[in-house]
Write a protein that binds this DNA or RNA. Structure first.
Lengths: 143, 143
DNA sequence: CTATGTGCAAATCTTTTGCAGGCTA
DNA sequence: TAGCCTGCAAAAGATTTGCACATAG
């Protein structure tokens, strides 16, 4: 997992992103946002991986704040939580519903080319319910 | 979530199922197996729900044993672990790869009619990897 | 100035593990 | 009998929370 370098430009991109979600841009949030979206790339992170990246960039953020911040970004619609592993939460900077590859060996989550996953048939939602999202996780094993 | 009633017949069904997985049929395992497959229905359980069901049937099984047993059944290929919730593991008595409905309101997992989910296109596995499984979870929200 | 965010440590929740005693083959 | 299984309690790992202090608007 590789993060955006922290530069004035990435901070500015992060700040703009925060404002889109109406999240108050504190120092810690701007740093984390910069790491996540500072270069415009999509990323898949865990609390732990983001925390390490922040430390590696010399930013001082506590692990609890990383957790709270990821949750706040999710609530603001800036991130999507992806469930692929029963013991860890993954967050995706791309909030659209799209398929993922999950590398069982490295526990890494990446985007699957969404143009190459297509349903020819999907069931109706049972009465009284509607489909909120369709999660597709393609689990990969090294051969 | 509803379990099979514990009867001599369900115990026998459970025992046969255990033998198929070459799992030694201890008293606790036979009880849990009976609750899971005693009536031939497919079930989706969590450690907690199975533990409660065992208690409700008057079986004496510790929670740790339920966890260990579910893990053992999985390793034996008798159950499938389904990842839909980052905080809880679900186990399915149907070991074939098939799609699920997840009811966000009740946190309940059910089978989606697999005849009604069909891909018209799936990506190639990236080089060096093969597709181990394709998880499809249709998240439902009450409307 | 006031509401909201942060950091730390402690709490919580699910799951696993160590160990002493029990039971299956 | 030998080895695997069980139960309990304690450990482990991820995440949340309480509270005092700091900071954005």
């Amino acid at each position: 997992m590789c993060f955006a370098p922290l530069t004035p430009a990435s901070s500015q991109a992060g700040e703009k992103w925060l404002l889109r979600g109406k999240v108050r841009p504190t120092r810690q949030r701007v740093s984390l946002a910069g790491l996540l979206v500072g270069d415009g790339e999509n990323r898949h992170v865990t609390a732990e991986s983001l925390f390490m990246a922040a430390k590696a960039s010399g930013e001082s953020v506590s692990l609890a704040t990383v957790y709270n911040t990821l949750r706040a970004f999710c609530d603001a619609g800036l991130l999507n939580e992806i469930t692929v592993d029963a013991t860890r939460s993954y967050f995706d900077t791309c909030v659209e519903d799209h398929p993922h590859f999950f590398w069982e060996e490295t526990q890494e989550l990446t985007d699957a080319p969404s143009s190459e996953v297509e349903f020819s048939r999907l069931p109706e939602a049972p009465k009284g319910a509607r489909i909120a999202r369709v999660d597709v996780v393609i689990r990969l094993r090294r051969d």
